[in-house]
């Protein structure tokens, strides 16, 4: 009986102590982590809609559908939505900025784990810049007859980005 109580007690004590320490550290870091996330999202939004001064989320009953961007004097300067689609080896998440006329103002790829040197090049400016000024309702990769130039050797990634934007836009279109 005795050689069963001691190990249990020791394990319990260690659990309690480490739990307490972790809880304390979590309390210290949680606000910082949340703030970092917000900052990163905010930075991405500014990148795709540089004219906007502040952003207002527009949500459904449960989730945020898109953001409206306003300039300093509260005029609407555009919309922002995010979209995601599976590429060659990972989910490729893109944030898209739209002008009030519903043309793409800029896009940025915020997370992906595609092949380095090929699909991973989708984060580069050379690639994302070509989306600017295009109509999101009608973008296709060149291999599919459109005018989005695919990354060399990474048509699948290009297609994921392009089709994700088009699909997400078409879903949102009526609400904008």
């Amino acid at each position: 009986m005795k050689d069963f109580i001691r190990p249990t007690l020791v394990l319990l004590i260690i659990c309690v102590i480490s739990g307490a320490i972790l809880a304390f550290i979590y309390q210290q870091t949680a606000p910082l982590i949340a703030e970092n996330k917000l900052k990163a999202e905010e930075a991405a939004r500014r990148l795709v809609l540089p004219d906007a001064e502040f952003f207002k989320p527009v949500s459904d009953s449960s989730e945020v559908l898109y953001y409206e961007g306003y300039s300093a004097d509260s005029t609407l300067v555009g919309y922002i939505f995010s979209c995601v689609q599976y590429g060659y080896s990972s989910d490729v998440k893109t944030i898209v900025g739209l002008t009030p006329e519903l043309m793409i103002s800029a896009i940025t790829v915020v997370s992906q784990a595609e092949t380095p040197g090929l699909g991973a090049n989708c984060t580069k400016d050379d690639f994302t810049a070509q989306f600017t000024g295009k109509n999101p309702d009608n973008i296709y990769v060149d291999k599919d007859g459109g005018d989005i130039q695919s990354l060399t050797g990474a048509t699948i990634t290009t297609r994921a980005v392009t089709n994700a934007i088009r699909d997400a836009f078409q879903k949102l279109q009526d609400r904008l």
């Binding site: 190990p7 020791v10 394990l11 659990c15 480490s18 550290i25 210290q28 870091t29 982590i33």
Partner: peptide, 29 residues
């Protein structure tokens, strides 16, 4: 202090706690 019967769970607990601390600290800073 640690009885040899439960030493592996104890080690893992200690290690996991430190790893979690590192994880949270890195994410924050």
């Amino acid at each position: 202090f640690i009885p040899s019967k439960v030493r592996i769970p104890c080690y893992i607990l200690v290690i996991a706690s430190f790893v979690t601390i590192v994880d949270m600290a890195m994410e924050a800073y």
